[in-house]
Every structure is written in structure tokens, then in C-alpha cells.
Amino acid sequence: MNIKRLTALLACLLCPFALQAAQGDPISLETMIIDVPTAETFDRYQASFLTRAYDHGTVMESIDFGVYPRINIGVSIAAHELLGSSDDVRVLDPDFQAKWKIYDGSLYLPAIAIGYDGRRYGYGYNEHRVYADTKEYLDDRKGGYLTLTREIIVPGLNAAAGMNFSDFDWDELYWFTGMYYNLGDKVGLLAEWDNIRNMRDSRLNLGARFYLHPSLALDAAVRRIGRGDESERILQIRYVTNF
């Protein structure tokens, strides 16, 4: 294993503890459902630290910054088989993400954002979708995307929908949609249908979000529901602070 890469990963995991959140700082507007991006962005001078634990003992840390009003940039890095007893821990290549909210929305029109998400999931699967000793991914990066978000039907129920094309390849155009609904200020319900192009490639994800503190939220979710061995359970925790 590359020691420099592992050191970089550990620095990402420990970095949130070096920053302080003011008492009562709220979790910023919902920028992601589970994998589906919404049109919301973090506020300027906010930093978000998202740690996800998922299939095959993998841990991914994503760091996003509100660098300008309505503009976020970030970077992600993951370690495969970090959890558990495996001796074959691999620090994967880092990815980056960016988002620009180009329209805030109105009474009749949704908020609109464009962005790029380079994160990939399901490392070590072959072309037959079988876990093997490969460097391929089960879920490719979302790539460039356009997303729209607005509240619908009842207060607190928000819907997002959009399209994405991995690596800016128009021949690989996909669609996504999702909803989230907050039950008071402690729990949110999450549902999304991602990577829509045909039934085999699409992913149904369901989860719940628990607000542990105004600046801390825990997600528990199931991805690729109904896909047999490809289904996975994930846990992720997001911490938002100012810098």
C-alpha cells in the first residue's frame, strides 16, 4: 500500500476535528440525497466533511468548500478494504467534485445547478458485475450533470431531477430523480432512482437521515435495492462547519 496515499486519507479523516463549529450552526441546505445531487449548495465559508462506509470495508472521505456564493468545490479519497481484517488495503485515486447554483428558484420554477461529480463506487468488480481482483468500478462517476430541485405538494417534501453524462460523453447520457422529506427536525426520509437509462443499469436507493446536532447528520441507506449480491448497506456521517 502507498504510505503517502494512506497518510493523505488519514489527514482527510482527521481534518474535521481541527475545525470548530459555532454552537447552533445549521446543517446547510441538502446538497445530496444519497447519490443524487440537488440544486442546493453550501454557504460561502462553509466546509462539509462527509465520511461514507460501504461495501467491502471501503471508507470514502469527501470534503467540500463553499468558496464563492453558490459555488462549491471539493475532493474525495477512498481506502478499499480499510475496515475488517484484510491485509490488502488500497488507497484509491482521488476524485473531485464541483457545483454552481445558477438559479435560486421561484414560486413556479425550481432551483437549478450544474456540476461535476467524479466519485465512483464498487471498486473491484469485473465486466460481469462479479467481485474480483480488478481495478474496475461497479458504478462509474456521475460526471457532468444538470439538476433541478423544488418543494412539492406538502411543506418539507422536496424533489430533485436531472441528467448526467459520465466523462462528458453524450453517448452515455443518464437521468436521475429523488425525493427527501423531513419529519420535524430530527429525521429525514430519502429515496432516489439513479443512473436511469435502462433497468439493468439503474439504481434504486432508500435511506434515512438522522440529525444528531445542528451541524452533524448520520445517514443509513441501502443502495441497488433488488440487485441481489450487488445491493449494499451504507453508513455516512456529515459534519458542517465554517472556515
Rank of each mutant, 00 (worst) to 15 (best):
I3Y: 13
K4W: 14
A11M: 14
A11V: 12
L14F: 15
G24N: 09
I27V: 13
T31P: 02
I34R: 07
T38Q: 06
F42E: 03
Y45I: 01
S48Y: 03
S48M: 08
D55V: 05
T58R: 06
V59R: 01
Y68M: 14
E81L: 01
E81Y: 08
L82F: 14
L83W: 11
V89K: 15
V91A: 10
L92I: 10
A98V: 12
W100Y: 15
Y103C: 09
G105W: 08
G105H: 09
L107F: 14
L107G: 07
L109V: 03
P110Q: 08
A111E: 12
Y116D: 07
G122V: 09
Y125R: 07
N126T: 12
V130D: 06
D133H: 03
D133Q: 05
D140R: 11
R141C: 02
L148N: 02
V154K: 01
N158M: 11
A161G: 12
F165R: 07
Y174A: 01
T177M: 11
M179R: 00
K186T: 12
L189W: 08
D194P: 01
D194L: 04
M199W: 10
A208W: 03
R209C: 12
Y211T: 11
A217S: 04
A220Y: 04
D229H: 07
S231E: 15
E232I: 02
R233C: 13
R233S: 14
R238G: 03
V240T: 08
V240R: 00
N242K: 05
